[in-house]
Simulated assay, not measured.
Amino acid sequence: MSYCNYIINNPSENSDYLLHKHYHDNQYGFPIDNDDELFGRLLLEINQAGLSWTLMLRKQESFRAAYSNFSIEKVAQYDDGDRERLLQDPGIIRNRLKINAAIINAQKILELKKEFGSFKKWLDANHPLTKAEWVKLFKKTFKFTGGEIVNEFLMSTGYLPGAHDDDCPVFLKLASNR
């Protein structure tokens, strides 16, 4: 079942459904112009690997707090003390590889910003690529970015198609804004 069908055909008042509905209706597939928010989405996608997206949606605000409001500049400066703080934070995924990837990826984004002006401009400069080309580029550029992580990050930010079914009201809304 597609994400859109789940949202449209299974309405519920439970908190997990409402988290997914809000994400589907207001974030998934929507372009993000702010570099820190793009970084935050990439960080969440990396941390979701092997886990559920529901968990990421539940922990999104804890991640935001733990990672300095997703500030690329601040996360790029994190040291061993910050790594230990994150490893002890029950509000996030406490995986050393994922924490290190966040810090290294923030540092890499700072390098990209020097060359391209922003993370978004780097993404725009490489758009459109095929999924395979994006995956190759991300693996060369960033840490902990396999095919599914790259695919979901790019679909969720509007760089790859497929976030919404063609008959989904959100798909129609996004299509009319292009």
Rank of each mutant, 00 (worst) to 15 (best):
D33K: 11
S118K: 12
K59N: 01
A102M: 00
P11W: 07
Y23R: 10
G81R: 07
L129N: 15
S176I: 08
H24D: 05
A125Y: 04
K120V: 05
N47T: 04
D80Q: 15
N126E: 04
K120E: 13
P11S: 01
I109P: 11
A132E: 15
D89W: 09
W134V: 13
H20S: 13
K113P: 08
K98L: 08
K139M: 15
I103V: 13
A65C: 09
I99Y: 08
G117I: 10
F142L: 05
L55D: 05
F119T: 11
A106K: 02
D89K: 06
S15M: 00
N47V: 06
R83Y: 07
D25K: 06
L174Y: 06
H20A: 10
F70C: 07
N177T: 12
K108E: 14
D36Q: 08
N95W: 07
R178T: 13
E111C: 03
L18W: 06
Q77G: 07
Y28E: 12
E133V: 08
Y159E: 11
D166L: 10
D35C: 02
A163N: 10
E37W: 07
Q88S: 11
N100H: 11
H164C: 04
E45T: 01
L44W: 07
H127Q: 14
L57N: 01
Q107A: 01
K59Y: 03
G81M: 08
E73F: 05
F119V: 08
W134E: 12
G50I: 04
L38H: 04
F144D: 13
S176M: 03
Q60H: 14
N5L: 01
R64A: 02
K143A: 09
L18E: 15
H24M: 03
V150D: 01
N5C: 07
A102I: 02
N14Y: 01
A76D: 10
I99L: 03
R85D: 06
L18M: 11
G117L: 08
K114L: 14
H24Q: 06
L137A: 04
W134N: 13
I8L: 15
Y6N: 02
R96D: 13
D35L: 03
S156D: 15
K113C: 11
L154E: 09
N9T: 01
T157W: 00
R64F: 00
N100I: 04
H164T: 06
S15T: 14
F116P: 12
I32G: 13
L57S: 05
F142A: 07
K120Q: 14
M56I: 12
Y17W: 07
D80G: 10
K108L: 00
I149V: 14
I8T: 13
Q60F: 00
L86W: 10
E115R: 12
F116K: 08
T130V: 09
N5F: 00
K173C: 09
A49Y: 09
K136F: 01
Y3T: 03
Q60G: 09
